[in-house]
Write a protein that binds this DNA or RNA. Structure first.
Length: 446
RNA sequence: CGGGGCGUAGCGCAGCCUGGUAGCGCGUCGGUUUUGGGUACCGAAGGCCGCGAGUUCGAAUCUCGCCGCCCCGACCA
């Protein structure tokens, strides 16, 4: 993409309304534009990151055996009356009427709807286990939206739902999602720690929240340092292997890790030696829980067992805050100059900077690199504007592309370009072809 | 929803107390200059001063009402 043809409305100054760093940087980098309180348009740069995050979530969900669907944003109120949540949900739920005065709502979540779908088609133990998920916009009319996309009213969420014949099978589904989430967040370069959670308004008991540690986190967290160092690394996971998944579950949930909602100071001290105790702040980016028959009973989602008995299915629900992750990633990856995208979610693999637009040799070298990078399968943002070097560098640093390839007359005289790493600030001079090869190597396997 | 603050050019702000036909910086456009870290200078465009009512000869400024946004708190992916 050529910057002269792109839409990248960067801001030199920080808009007054933005308080936290991710919100400020998203506005300055031209990623989002506020429409009203807690509701945003996603501009090209922001949308690109959002789609990359979505793609990772899709891949890891399906790897774990979940099946993608797409349910509507607008739901009929009757469905929620059946589960009893129409009245229970409160003013957070946006209630609307259609032209026939029928009560509708903009869905804050989809348990009722997915249960209704399951019930319509699945009635036998042979139909389970099933794990369905979708990535869809939700609306919760928060009293006070804030922090940009981290706490918006409209937000993009992955929510998945498991259906199993009994408790033991449901726990396996739960463990599948636990492993899928660990993989998902690791791929994004995030340290997300599963923490024991309260069941919350949805009910149930087997529940964990995934939090990434960040100074601006909304929750206080208390944890054993050892859990932060756990990593799946290249572990091959067989999602049908109950023992392996149970082992992963055990390893990640054994160390003490809780938010201030569930924190138990005495237990914390008894379980964790002082030198391993960490008190920090965290941002919740995912939530998994087993809720048993909470929805299947009132909605009469039953399956027949091999013995011919009809039993309510055991359900679990698994959320990832996809749009929130954009903000959370920035909270975890930035410096005083701007954003630093991990390679796995960056909107462009590399920024190509032409230091002397209009100079025949430099233009030609840039065009050549632009074509070769594209041929190597890399996405490129080519700054072909006639801005000065300082302005171009500042913009590249602000928008956070992980690698910058700088081409100028000075280096070109000796046949080199500069490849700079956004995260470390390190740079090296090498031939254009070597730069392409190095970038290709960096991005291989992501 | 309780408490506080703010709505003036695309963005950041001054002007309001003490009414008199709207200003600064950045950005944008044109020109000169500069050319490896947000260059300097010259010129220009751009605003029913959030909306409505009132007071007044006259309202960005005073009064009342409404709307929107932000911050603290309770609530949440």
């Amino acid at each position: 993409m050529r910057l002269t043809r792109y839409f990248l409305p960067v801001l030199k100054e920080t808009p007054a309304e933005a308080q936290i760093v991710s919100h400020r940087l998203m506005l300055r980098a031209g990623m989002i534009r506020q429409s009203s309180a807690g509701i945003y348009s996603w501009l090209p740069m922001g949308y690109a990151v959002l789609r990359r995050i979505e793609e990772i979530v899709h891949q890891e969900q399906q790897r774990a055996g979940a099946i993608p669907v797409l349910m509507p944003t607008i739901q009929p109120a009757d469905l929620w009356r059946q589960s009893g949540r129409y009245d229970a949900y409160g003013p957070e739920m946006l209630r609307i009427k259609d032209r026939h005065e029928r009560d509708m709502l903009y869905g804050p979540t989809n348990e009722e709807m997915i249960t209704e779908i399951f019930k319509a088609y699945c009635g036998s133990y042979r139909d389970v286990p099933k794990m369905l998920y979708h990535i869809q916009w939700k609306f919760r009319d928060e009293i006070r939206p804030r922090f940009g996309v981290m706490r918006g009213r409209e937000f993009l969420m992955k929510d998945g739902y498991s259906f199993d014949v009994d408790h033991a099978a449901a726990i396996h589904s739960y463990n599948q999602m636990m492993a899928a989430y660990l993989r998902t967040f690791e791929r994004m370069g995030l340290k997300a720690v599963p923490m024991k959670a309260e069941s919350g308004p949805i009910g149930g008991d087997h529940a964990h929240e995934f939090l990434i540690l960040a100074e601006t986190g909304e929750s206080g967290v208390f944890l054993d340092r050892t859990v932060v160092d756990l990593s799946l690394g290249g572990t091959a996971i067989d999602f049908d292997d109950r023992a392996q998944l149970q082992d992963i579950f055990d390893r990640w949930t054994a160390p003490y890790a809780r938010t201030d909602d569930t924190h138990d100071e005495a237990l914390f001290h008894s379980m964790v030696p002082e030198d391993r105790r960490v008190e920090a702040r965290g941002i919740e980016v995912g939530h998994i829980f087993y809720f048993g028959t909470k929805y299947s009973e009132p909605l009469q989602a039953l399956v027949t067992t091999p013995e011919g008995e009809k039993v309510p299915v055991h359900g679990g629900s698994y959320g990832i805050g996809v749009s929130r992750l954009v903000g959370a990633l920035i909270e975890a990856n930035h410096d005083d100059k701007g954003i630093i995208w991990p390679e796995s979610v960056t909107p462009f693999a590399v920024g190509l900077v032409n230091l002397k637009q209009g100079d025949a040799a430099v233009d030609a070298a840039c065009e050549d690199l632009y074509a070769k990078l594209a041929a190597a399968g890399l996405t490129v943002l080519y700054d072909d504007t006639d801005e000065r070097a300082g302005a171009k560098f500042a913009t590249m640093e602000l928008i956070g592309l992980p690698w910058r390839l700088t081409v100028g007359p000075r280096g070109l005289k000796s046949g080199v370009v500069e490849l700079a790493c956004r995260r470390t600030g390190a740079s090296e001079e090498l031939s254009p072809d070597a730069a392409v090869a190095k970038l290709r190597a960096i991005y291989t396997g992501l």
